[in-house]
Design a protein around this nucleic acid. Structure first.
Length: 330
DNA sequence: AATTAGTGCAACCGCAAGCTG
DNA sequence: CCAGCTTGCGGTTGCACTAAT
């Protein structure tokens, strides 16, 4: 225990962080191992809370705010580090569509994840993709893209990763995955942690497509009445850790003929999607992006998939380009 | 090899709500 | 009811690291 604790006097509380700044030279910036150790040790013996006095009593030349942040975002034993899993991505997308930038609220449903981490994920990943799509992250277009394209694609991939037996069939340029559980029943497992307080229906209800419109792989017809089979636990989630180039980038276009149907059908129905799905170009301008891609990669349609660098890290891979070609008669 | 640009993340800042005397 | 303080939240910044040139 830090010897300075012996001199710890509970002060009147009349000083705030700014005043503390004047009283003593406070440390800023990255925490040292020693500081971490001191903070952990102090909290282990005295518990957390009363951060200003905690900082003082622990002998840390840090503001209470800084100590709190360090503890909550980094030192807490239950903080979970590492890549955001597919399940977590799906949860973040869904909860953000529901609550907006309520990071702490979203974090409550992602055990071990901090609001800061989720916020960073959103800003660095999701907003980046919105920028690439040349649309505002808060726009209806982008939100619909997330809801009806990315999220179903994520579900599809989660299912594929979670299957005990997987049958892959190729239709056109895409694959559809049939999930068969060990009991022999075919279900659409949902990546919901039962320990979460969140209503399991939240994600489902948000993802329900107008009848017959979403035909994203095998989940197509079941999507509106998905059988919820929570399959996600922190223990197994690591198997689907996000690898570079495997996050939202892959979800821009769930490329299969059925999704073409989805878009085409949306063109003709009198639904809320009309204003955004009159044409996929309402979301963004794929031709401009294609041009940019060609410029950047110095390759063409035919060899887009063989352009050295894996295009999955870019906007469009070969399948997606094929899709665009079909979609826009390019 | 050096420089530049891009990315991810930890930490800071300001504000507001909640708490307490 | 009010003032002062603490805590929590969301936005922003700075820095380390990596890739590209």
């Amino acid at each position: 225990m830090n010897s300075s604790n012996n001199n710890c006097v509970e002060m009147s509380g009349s000083e705030d962080d700014d005043q503390m700044n004047m009283i003593e030279d406070l440390r800023r910036g990255p925490w040292t191992v020693e500081e971490d150790f001191t903070l952990i040790n102090y909290i282990a013996h005295h518990g957390e809370g009363r951060w200003n006095s905690l900082a003082r009593c622990a002998g840390l030349k840090r503001t209470g705010k800084s100590c709190r942040l360090r503890w909550l975002n980094y030192l807490r034993p239950d903080v979970r580090r590492g890549n955001i899993t597919l399940e977590e991505q799906l949860m973040i997308l869904e909860l953000h569509s529901r609550w907006g930038n309520r990071w702490s609220k979203i974090a409550q449903h992602l055990p071990g994840r901090t609001d800061n981490e989720i916020k960073n994920y959103w800003r660095t990943r999701v907003q980046k993709h919105a920028k690439q799509l040349k649309c505002d992250v808060n726009s209806k277009q982008f939100k619909d893209t997330m809801r009806y394209l990315w999220m179903p694609r994520l579900v599809e991939r989660i299912q594929a990763a979670a299957t005990t037996t997987t049958t892959t069939t190729t239709t056109g340029c895409s694959s559809s995955t049939t999930t068969t559980t060990s009991t022999g029943t075919t279900t659409n497992s949902y990546p919901l942690n039962q320990s979460n307080n969140i209503d399991n229906n939240i994600v489902t209800s948000q993802l329900v497509m107008p009848q017959g419109q979403n035909n994203c792989g095998n989940m197509s017809t079941n999507f509106g009445n998905t059988q919820i089979t929570p399959s996600y636990t922190p223990e197994n989630s690591s198997t689907t850790a996000v690898s570079p180039g495997s996050d939202l980038t892959d979800c821009y276009f769930p490329v299969n003929s059925q999704n073409q149907n989805f878009i085409q059908q949306n063109n003709s129905i009198g639904s809320e999607f009309n204003d955004t799905l009159i044409s996929p170009s309402a979301y963004f301008n794929p031709w401009m992006d294609y041009q940019g891609m060609v410029d950047q990669n110095n390759c063409r349609w035919s060899d887009a998939g063989n352009c050295g660098d894996d295009l999955s890290d870019n906007m469009w891979n070969a399948e997606e380009i094929w899709f665009l070609k079909q979609q826009f008669n390019m």
